[in-house]
């Protein structure tokens, strides 16, 4: 028993160091910067600066666009996850490879590649023109930003859901069908409730990076759609105003944690439906 504990401690040690160095220390530093002014004295000025219409509007937009991207990812991703988990589709391996392959490429590069495709004289517009259709302005609007989020984060929605669906024992579904449940009832009463943990991780893994992204809005939004991540990046990289940047980061963290708490609460309630 003791030996096991020791082993566990040794195995955990690198992870612990990792967590402390790269998560705990930075969070403490951010809290410190956010709650002090330029002279290092405690102050809430950085937070006060945030609460003006411009910044709140940007924050609201970030939450809204991330939510939109999450809903789209869920609607698109769930069926794909079901196909992956089911037996009817024969080329599952190919599908998995197709879903994972883009992730082997750098995130920046992947997003940058879409620029070439969607530009005014880009690949899509060239095709449109050769078909005699008018050029479209794909970039520089909200749609492009949401598209970028869905494209980049979709696999993070699919795989957790896929995992939780494939863990559902087949005999439960068979039992439901024996008892006269059709496919629809089976889906809503068995598969959906049992895949809630997967949905939750999927939603988290899409929503959180969606709220905080700044690369996607800069590339695909042409810098015309400012998200809260852009403001934070600007305060740290450009304005050198770490206090304000840190304060916004804290506000975003609190908002994200609140959202996740709400989602989790909702899911606890939903388990009541389960027999």
């Amino acid at each position: 028993m003791k030996k096991n504990n020791l082993l566990r401690a040794v195995a955990l040690f690198p992870f612990l160091i990792w967590i402390i160095l790269l998560i705990v220390v930075p969070v403490i530093l951010i809290a410190y910067y956010g709650l002090t002014n330029a002279d290092g004295v405690f102050s809430l000025d950085n937070f006060r600066q945030f609460f003006q219409p411009n910044y709140l509007r940007v924050f609201g937009r970030s939450l809204y666009l991330a939510l939109l991207a999450t809903v789209i990812c869920l609607l698109v991703g769930y069926p794909i996850a079901m196909i992956l988990a089911g037996n009817t589709f024969k080329r599952k391996t190919l599908l998995v490879v197709l879903l994972i392959a883009p992730m082997w490429m750098n995130f920046l590069l992947r997003t940058y590649a879409w620029l070439t495709l969607l530009e005014g004289n880009g690949v899509f517009n060239t095709i449109l023109q050769s078909l005699g259709l008018p050029k479209q302005a794909f970039l520089g609007n909200v749609n492009a930003v949401v598209f970028g989020m869905v494209y980049n984060f979709l696999p993070y929605m699919i795989f957790p859901i896929y995992t939780s669906i494939s863990k559902i024992p087949k005999n439960i579904i068979e039992a439901a069908k024996d008892l006269g449940g059709g496919n629809v009832i089976c889906f809503f009463r068995i598969i959906l409730p049992l895949s809630v943990p997967g949905i939750l991780s999927g939603v988290t893994m899409v929503f959180v990076p969606g709220v905080t992204t700044f690369v996607i809005s800069q590339f695909l939004g042409s810098g015309k759609i400012t998200l809260i991540g852009d403001i934070i990046e600007q305060q740290f990289m450009h304005a050198g105003n770490w206090g304000f940047g840190a304060a916004i980061s804290i506000i975003v963290m609190i908002a994200v944690v609140l959202c996740m708490w709400l989602v989790n609460r909702f899911s606890d309630d939903s388990e009541v439906i389960m027999p």
């Binding site: 400012t226 852009d230 105003n241």
Partner: peptide, 15 residues
């Protein structure tokens, strides 16, 4: 300069 920085980030937030 910090006035410039403030005005500049307000501009960014207005986009």
């Amino acid at each position: 300069t910090s006035m410039y920085e403030r005005v500049w980030s307000e501009f960014q937030a207005s986009l």
